[in-house]
């Protein structure tokens, strides 16, 4: 199995300086489900040792999985990146 890093290196991301998705992890602290951690195909949701969630928008597929599985109102503010930015597929 190829490493996750190597897997994500195969994808082009035109990263915008501003995050298009914002996670309010004060809400995540009370979440017992945390489906985003296993479901996000880019593995962008990482649990921290103090019970929070670390989120990085940079390698996002913009698929929508995280907000669809999130059952905590207001935890994920989800938008598309600014035009021309974000994931760019070439052979998919």
């Amino acid at each position: 199995m190829i490493s996750f890093e190597r897997r994500m290196d195969s994808v082009e991301f035109r990263i915008h300086s501003e995050a298009h998705i914002v996670v309010d992890d004060t809400i995540c602290r009370d979440c017992s489900v945390r489906g985003c951690i296993t479901a996000c195909p880019a593995d962008l949701f990482v649990p921290t040792s103090d019970g929070g969630i670390l989120f990085n928008y940079e390698q996002c597929f913009e698929c929508g999985t995280c907000y669809l599985v999130c059952n905590e109102e207001g935890a994920i503010s989800w938008n598309y990146p600014e035009g021309g930015h974000g994931v760019v597929f070439h052979s998919s």
């Binding site: 199995m1 489900v33 489906g35 296993t38 479901a39 593995d43 999985t65 599985v69």
Partner: peptide, 19 residues
């Protein structure tokens, strides 16, 4: 989606198993 979120298995792990 719900099963993936609840099951604790990541998508790329399941794909690696298929391969």
């Amino acid at each position: 989606l719900p099963a993936l979120a609840a099951g604790g298995r990541r998508p790329e792990e399941l794909l690696a198993e298929l391969k």
